[in-house]
Design a protein around this nucleic acid. Sequence first.
RNA 1: GGUCGGAUGGCCGAGUGGCUAGGCAGAGCUCUGCAAAAGCUCGUACAGCGGUUCGAAUCCGCUUUCGACCUCCA
Length: 514
Amino acid sequence: MLKVYNSLTRRKEVFESLIPGYAGMYVCGPTVSGESHLGHARPYITFDVVYRYLMHLGYKVRYVRNITDAGHFEEEGREAEDKISKKAVIEKLEPMELVQKYTNLFHWAFERFNTLRPSIEPTATGHIVEQIEMIKKIIEDGFAYVVNGSVYFDVKKYNEVFAQKGLPYGILSGRVLEEMLETTRELDNQEEKRNKTDFALWKNAPPEHIMRWPSPWGEGFPGWHIECSAMSQKYLGDQFDIHGGGMDLQFPHHEAEIAQSAVCNGRILAKYWMHNNMITINGKKMGKSYNNVIKLSELFTGNHPMLDQAYHPMTIKFFILQTHYRSTLDFSNDALKAADKGLKRLWEAYENLNKLTNDSGQMTDKNNEKSTVNQQPSTEENLDVKIVKLVNEFEEFINDDFNTAKVLANMFELVPIINGIKDKHIAADTISTSTLQLLQQQMKIYVEDILGLQSIQQHNNTQLNGIIELMINLRKEARQKKDYTLSDRIRNELGALGIQLKDEKDGNISYTIG
RNA sequence: GGUCGGAUGGCCGAGUGGCUAGGCAGAGCUCUGCAAAAGCUCGUACAGCGGUUCGAAUCCGCUUUCGACCUCCA
């Protein structure tokens, strides 16, 4: 039974989809006015696991994640310019050219993370009509007003009406409107608003704005929150199951979405609200405003002053999955290096486990092997029971609000067992065939299908692999002749190239690249 | 200032009223021609001060401290 922490109720709740068998999920996607950084990796990896797990549970899932390609106006106005058009001028690019570039980079990065593409990836600019229609409806119902070609949402009026319907403004973030109205903080460019809590649905475009669309209120562009209301409504309906995004979006973005959609649909747009926590760096949130971001491409190449080395996308993904999504996660080189080593060890054990499948004769053939030789005295009477317990807990843990950290911890507890069987520290007949099958089957499901992990190595170069095999054979021959000078030279020089040879117990030699 | 959330061993991080989280690093050992890898063993941590309790890192209060949101932000 899947339980998710619902930000709306601040409790873990049993997940029950609105329509049995189907699940709708909307996740706030990237603003493609710049390159994605490490902080962005968190929500898309987190919700990728949610998506994968819902599918694993048999739901037919529609996963919608928008691309924000229209510049969101800085409502409070100090830098009152459309972000995207501003950057385009600097870089002398067409706005849509810029948008395309960063969209491509986004897709490139998240393919390397092995995240699945959403079912629909709608763009804000592709849904101007829907947004205008929604704004019209909100005006008609009396919850928005027009000033100088701009449209503002009347938060105070909304709250008066909808608080009685159980949807007060602040329902998600726990804010009390009266308190917010009392705040004496003064900001510029607010004179058009009736109250400082009001937010823009549509902004009149000054002449220098490149991105602009005609509307009933003049030429302009949509406000920051309306696209998500419009697009989620279009593709997921008046109400859907999960709305996800970073914690920093809870207020005001999600709060505004709720209000807009409530006016149009009469109810809260999503049943479960899931928010991932932030990635921090030196204890501070990684974010644009702090000027402390590390871009994903910089992480992949190691090309950043704060990085000791390059980190593989899978390492970063593993790093993220080792922490519960609602906890902050602090970036450091040491932490990423630890993740890198841990992942490699886990993956090697996983491959060892899969090999146990291939020559399963070894496992079933209990009688002809003297399994007493090398083994440790088995303090673990029922290794079988232990394995079954660890494996069965995968489901228990992922069901507990997607606790990938605990799933991985259990996998690490299985690693010594798997390696022990492979190296024959543990007799093969200590565990039953059915347990081995369960282990193999569930590991595959969780490692690959649900967590979406992949090998960190590229095995695709057959020429290189052929050459290495050749060197391995030469080394084997040298060792047989006890020509250790030559055998060590082969191993050392390959090692210097990043190809590590390991002499296995059975006389074979395995290797890892990188 | 308001609202909310943290403070866990050298580092990263789970977590629960009593039972070893896990990873990385470190120490010792086994295996090995030597390495590496692997396996075994080990560090007994929960910010501080009170309180509740037979028992609290886990519940309550206070203190210290860090952070998030209130402005674009994943």
